[in-house]
């Protein structure tokens, strides 16, 4: 079908042909059609996430969606730190716990309204996480990861042993959202805001400095930039996202207890990140929205669910190390269309 009537030559061309050829050297998009190609997947993500709660059957799956949003935020926060700044932080459970306990106890003891506890839990919690992890920041790679992984165990032991904050019982009831739609759309909009906000941030000058810290921190030092300070900025940004998820979760479930420090919150984001595509920010969120419902379906298997995470991890590392989103993006750009020559 290379030739049509009327003697107009046609050939097949990849969607990204024009975009790719030009962006190797310069940033340029030449037509609305190309803008459309680039916007379509992004619009798809936004519209998809906004419609998702409407088509779900029943309250149970809407609750699962809220939980998936929490995991998505953690995965985004992990991906940003690990892939864009080079800090491997597996303290998702700590962020959830700190954010959740702060906003939960403010509501339980002081009867603060939700509109106040969530911001305080988010920013106060992020400040606390950053301050506590500050001494560990000169550590690199696996050492930082191990220290951050230890923190949730440390704090939950203190709460249990000291009998603080409701101890084993936890704090309950905590005021929920006026209705579930507010909760669900709140978390979905924060997920979208985090994805696009962080992508934007990584394109700014500070994002280039973050990438510099990941690529070669000695060169950043030699450029007269205090690497530890840059890491603090990144850690704070990431903790804000994680602690928001925690504050949200305590109100969404009406409960703040030791379960907020569960290992799942530290491990699942890594699985989601590897599944969705490390470094893409949207990919890990996608991974979380797949893994969280999947693990709910397998609830009957109890602790065996961890085996599922491991299988997903191993499977993706072996067969699709680039992750779902990078794979889908590649396939999308390879779609061919007919063009007039």
């Amino acid at each position: 079908m290379g030739r049509e009537t009327g003697a107009i030559e046609r050939r097949k061309e990849r969607l990204d042909r024009g975009i790719k050829a030009r962006t190797e050297g310069l940033y340029a998009i030449s037509s609305w059609r190309e803008v459309g190609y680039l916007l379509a997947p992004r619009a798809g993500l936004i519209i998809g996430l906004l419609i998702l709660p409407l088509i779900l059957p029943g309250l149970y799956w809407q609750r699962v969606l809220g939980l998936a949003g929490v995991y998505a935020l953690l995965a985004i926060s992990f991906d940003f730190l690990a892939e864009r700044v080079g800090l491997v932080c597996i303290g998702g459970a700590f962020m959830i716990g700190v954010g959740g306990y702060i906003s939960g106890s403010l509501n339980y003891y002081l009867k603060f309204p939700v509109a106040l506890t969530i911001p305080i839990g988010t920013f106060g919690g992020a400040l606390l996480c950053t301050l506590l992890w500050l001494p560990c920041l000169p550590l690199r790679g696996i050492y930082f990861a191990v220290v951050t992984f230890m923190f949730p165990f440390l704090v939950s032991s203190i709460i249990l042993a000291g009998g603080f904050l409701g101890s084993t019982e936890g704090l309950s009831p905590i005021a929920g959202f006026p209705n579930i739609w507010i909760g669900i759309y709140l978390i979905i909009s924060i997920v979208l805001l985090s994805i696009f906000g962080l992508r934007r941030l990584c394109g700014e000058d500070i994002g280039v400095v973050f990438a510099g810290v990941k690529d070669n921190d000695q060169a950043v030092f030699a450029s007269g930039v205090n690497v530890t300070r840059v890491k603090v900025y990144a850690l704070f940004i990431s903790s804000v996202i994680g602690c928001f998820a925690g504050a949200f979760l305590s109100h969404f479930s009406g409960f703040a207890g030791i379960s907020l420090f569960a290992v799942d919150f530290s491990i699942m984001p890594i699985a989601a990140c590897i599944m969705g595509g490390p470094g893409t920010l949207a990919g890990p969120a996608l991974g979380a929205f797949i893994l969280a419902p999947l693990s709910e379906l397998l609830r009957g298997f109890g602790q065996l669910r961890v085996v599922l995470y491991c299988l997903v991890l191993v499977g993706f590392i072996l067969y699709k190390p680039e992750g779902l989103l990078s794979w889908a993006a590649r396939k999308y750009h390879q779609i061919e269309r007919w063009v007039k020559v």
Binding site: V208, A211, G212, Q218, A219, V225
Partner: peptide, 27 residues
Amino acid sequence: TRTFQIVRPYLSQRAFKNLIVPLWSPR
């Protein structure tokens, strides 16, 4: 300031983006 004998570029970045880091520095 100093240069490194074994060069230390930010390989994931474009050449000019490599200079964003020193240009962003307080100095």
